[in-house]
């Protein structure tokens, strides 16, 4: 039972990280009709920049600096590439993001090398014991910070003009234009929000026991099964999908370590994703219309 609680806690913490990344995917998909395969690399850039700034600045400034850099990168890609390709069709745009992803990955290797680095998390490797269950501080920080970010996002979408305008753009672009909404700005805003979420996710993805390494982008892409399971156009779906993927991975790693060379848990989210695609292609919370994407 203790093991289950411990794994469950870690699974929820990891799931929240996936939820933040998955939300970025969904917000970009809804806001600008694209699926951005470079998003995993945005997460990696976030972690590397925090790590690079940490020795020179207080942690929170390193974090803000990373947000500035990552948002700038996202806006650059959106404005120079995506906005120009929009009328060329979804496949073109998606392939372009794949190209960007490979370029950013190469750039990271050029600047920081192929080796693994230290942790980029806000708290160290400490633990607390609650009723016999050992909880790492990094997990607690992950859950607390993610809940705060999710609440802020909820307020943003429900209660601010920008949130409303983004929802309107996602709902019907022509009608949004008729309200005087500059949908180009909304595309950019959705990418900027996704980039901010990527940086928040990155510091927790690179928290104890994990570290910053070039493969962090690949780990971040486990948010893709989360998006598919939850539904491509559902914000709630992204959070639920993220938690499901986090829990399966951690519980799988704990209980199935003796099978498949201890690698089985990495496959499980994708098995579930394929199952969802066959049985319920629009995901648990998605709308049916999204199937054609």
């Amino acid at each position: 039972m203790t093991l289950f609680l411990q794994l469950g806690f870690q699974g929820i913490a990891l799931g929240m990280v996936y939820a933040l990344i998955a939300l970025g995917f969904v917000i970009m998909t809804k806001g600008s009709n694209t699926f951005n395969f470079a998003h995993g690399e945005f997460v990696a850039v976030g972690a590397y920049v925090v790590l690079a700034l940490m020795p020179h600045l207080p942690y929170w400034l390193a974090f803000l600096g990373s947000i500035v850099v990552t948002v700038a990168l996202a806006l650059l890609v959106e404005a120079t590439l995506l906005r120009r390709l929009l009328d060329k069709g979804l496949t073109t745009v998606v392939l372009a993001t794949l190209g960007v992803s490979i370029m950013v990955h190469a750039l990271i290797l050029m600047v920081w090398g192929v080796g693994t680095k230290g942790s980029a998390g806000p708290v160290g490797s400490g633990t607390v014991e609650v009723g016999g269950v050992v909880l790492p501080l990094s997990g607690i920080a992950t859950i607390v910070a993610s809940v705060i970010v999710l609440a802020a996002l909820l307020v943003f979408f429900r209660r601010t003009p920008y949130g409303l305008a983004l929802r309107a753009t996602a709902s019907h672009q022509e009608a949004a234009l008729a309200q005087g909404i500059d949908i180009g700005r909304m595309f950019a805003l959705s990418w900027a929000i996704a980039a901010v979420l990527a940086v928040v996710a990155s510091i927790f993805l690179a928290s104890f026991p994990r570290v910053v390494s070039p493969s962090i982008a690949l780990v971040a892409l486990a948010a893709i099964p989360a998006v598919v399971i939850g539904g491509m156009d559902s914000l709630i779906g992204a959070v639920v999908g993220g938690l499901i993927v986090g829990l399966i991975q951690v519980l799988g790693a704990g209980y199935l370590a003796d099978y498949g060379g201890g690698k089985l848990h990495e496959v499980l989210p994708y098995v579930l994703m394929l199952l969802v695609l066959v049985v319920r292609p629009y995901g648990l919370f998605g709308s049916r219309g999204i199937e054609r994407v």
Partner: peptide, 10 residues
């Protein structure tokens, strides 16, 4: 619009 274009989820 000819076919009402309101934002249904709002």
């Amino acid at each position: 619009f000819q076919n009402v274009e309101v934002f249904p989820a709002m």
